[in-house]
Design a binder for these strands. Structure first.
Lengths: 355, 355
DNA sequence: TATGTTGGCTCAAACGATTGCGCAAATTTG
DNA sequence: CAAATTTGCGCAATCGTTTGAGCCAACATA
């Protein structure tokens, strides 16, 4: 079959050990003569040897691969983060096993189990976010683990998140600055870290600007397009229609757009939208989207670096939480109601072509 | 450390072999008594044993993981296909190692090398598509391999592709049926299977409808957004502007939209667009997109099934090429110039809400 | 009683690498 | 020239599984 160090040892006239030592750069330590080293290296090259990673892994208890668990790779936000993670990991010598949970807790648990048995060196997990028992097991068993995008305050592990409260606060404040008062929110998965923070940001912004909260305008139950469609339909049907909607993911926004188009409304004239994510297509939608941009590249990179530090034992033992700041990108999906307000003037309308 | 069959053997008072046999369902074959089996199973459960996949893999030369090499996971088309592949593979007991090439051949070669050493059971590759030496090596060494989306006629291996010629032909014919005669194409990566087929479909459609080919209207050099932007800028600057553009990927289309918006043109009034892919966001763009829809689910599923058949040795030894038919989805990005043409009437405008 | 058959399990050699220990030969030291 | 030290490398155990071959007891057959 494939070439092994056996073959090399034989052809080079030395022992297994010697070959292994030369190839793993331990020649100095074990005092292998220069001549022998060259000999071995030559044969290795000649036979086009590639070490068997499974054998290495078994012996060294290290697979040089990390497991990524993501709710939905086809969601452009996650897709982008995944790409960064893959690239960064590859540069650092790791390959990536990708698992999809479809936002389903049972699937997530199954994937974690699967990965555990695969001798993964570490995990990057964007959890569904409602339960964390299975993750606690990982932490207890000292599996290197970085939570990404979503985390649990109770779980003592590294994590990389965006300041969702800040993002939501600014999105909502922007709407208020533009003169909106009846502002709805279509939330994502309730009772999850990310979502709760976004909702909290929304509520805080309303409160800080002296606006009353209308519970009827808080809707939504997951981050998917279908949800955006349904909830927008509902919001549009209200007697006292909101003038603006804060959609908490770009996918929700797509659904909202569909509902709005179907009901023959127009963005932003009839209804304003601020979204969350700012994925690639955001500038090109029926109305170029004002959205909170998540620092996708930074998220992916930080997660990988943190994880690999943890794997190498170089991470601070105190668990770190990296909190990244989002950015509000203003385009044309928000109508300015109160051109009297100076704050509004400086905000949208100018930099439409931020892409 | 972790529990091994050693521990189980000891606690159950039997030998390693017996444990292994019971756990791998070979009890019958090796005549292990029912009592012993239950004994072993009980201890296994009690200790919460999970087999070490590395050791198993080493012994059995099987990792139950497959490698996926994809040009760009963040491209929504590939992202969607990747999700299907992951899900299907998982259902069939395989996990997925994902590699990204960024459409770069050197990276692709590096990734293939990496995966080869990882004891992958098989490959699904969406190649960059300009070279196939490294893939030929895989084929020669009998690595199960399925090419997806793009293939090489010269390479004798399984492949799953879309009938790109047909898709392009129908896209172009649709434009012609709507009365367009000056039709540009923004192609993808030249000299690749997929792209050549699409260009051929475009040319054939023009020819079959008696339209002359204007070489100036054939532009583009890769599938990315930037490319769409630049080429559209160019096309719009021509004295003899085309009335329609066939953009050969949704990403190119985004760039085209940007250029068109920037130059203050309007879709479809000033310029019509037919795209390729029909990703999720296509219906919600500034102009709901008429596009050739690729059967993403079917592509991903077929690729995995074919690969696993090949891994299990159940695939026909003759290499199979699965060719899937695309579908033209008409929305509102194409203007009907000749309302006299009966063919045009029956086509667009009705089913705008295909999502 | 000798012989064959079967049931029920264990032994030990793989798979392909890594590594502590130890053994010769070469070299230095006294 | 003997002893001590260094140089250069090999032996064999190990990682956690799987599996062909073999062994012993019990039972059936002649």
């Amino acid at each position: 079959m494939a070439i092994t160090i056996h073959d090399i040892a034989e052809k080079a006239g030395v022992s297994l050990s010697t070959v292994s030592r030369v190839l793993s750069g331990k020649a100095e330590k074990y005092r292998i003569s220069r001549k022998t080293q060259e000999q071995v290296l030559a044969v290795t090259k000649a036979l086009n040897y590639h070490p068997n990673k499974m054998a290495q892994g078994l012996r060294l208890k290290k697979s040089h691969s990390i497991g990524l668990i993501v709710p939905d790779i086809s969601n452009p936000f996650f897709a982008c983060v995944t790409r960064i993670i893959q690239t960064t990991a590859f540069e650092m010598g790791y390959s990536l096993i990708v698992c999809n949970t479809n936002e389903d807790l049972a699937t997530e648990i199954a994937q974690v189990e699967l990965l555990k048995s695969k001798f993964i060196d570490g995990f990057i997990i964007m959890p569904v976010g409602t339960e964390y028992q299975h993750l606690e097991t990982l932490v207890r068993k000292k599996h290197p683990l970085v939570l990404l995008d979503r985390c649990f305050d109770e779980l003592k592990t590294h994590s990389v998140v965006v300041d969702n409260h800040d993002g939501a606060y600014r999105a909502t404040s922007h709407l208020i600055a533009c003169g909106h008062e009846k502002i709805a929110i279509i939330q994502g998965l309730p009772n999850t870290y990310t979502n709760s923070e976004r909702v909290r940001g929304y509520l805080d912004a309303l409160r800080d600007h002296g606006l009353a909260v209308n519970p009827q305008l808080i809707v939504g139950k997951d981050y998917r397009r279908e949800s955006g469609y349904i909830e927008t339909k509902f919001l549009l049907s209200l007697k006292d229609r909101p003038t603006a909607i804060f959609t908490t993911s770009d996918l929700i926004t797509l659904g909202a757009f569909q509902a709005i188009a179907e009901d023959q409304y127009h963005i932003p004239d009839d209804i304003s939208i601020v979204s969350f994510d700012d994925t690639d297509f955001a500038p090109y939608l029926m109305a170029p989207l004002t959205a909170v941009r998540q620092p996708k590249e930074l998220m992916g990179e930080s997660a990988v670096r943190l994880l690999i530090e943890a794997i190498d034992g170089k991470a601070q033992p105190e668990k770190q939480r990296v909190v990244l700041k989002p950015q509000l990108i203003t385009r044309e999906s928000v109508k300015i109601l109160n051109s009297a307000n100076p704050a509004a003037h400086s905000l949208p309308g100018k930099n439409h072509h931020i892409l």
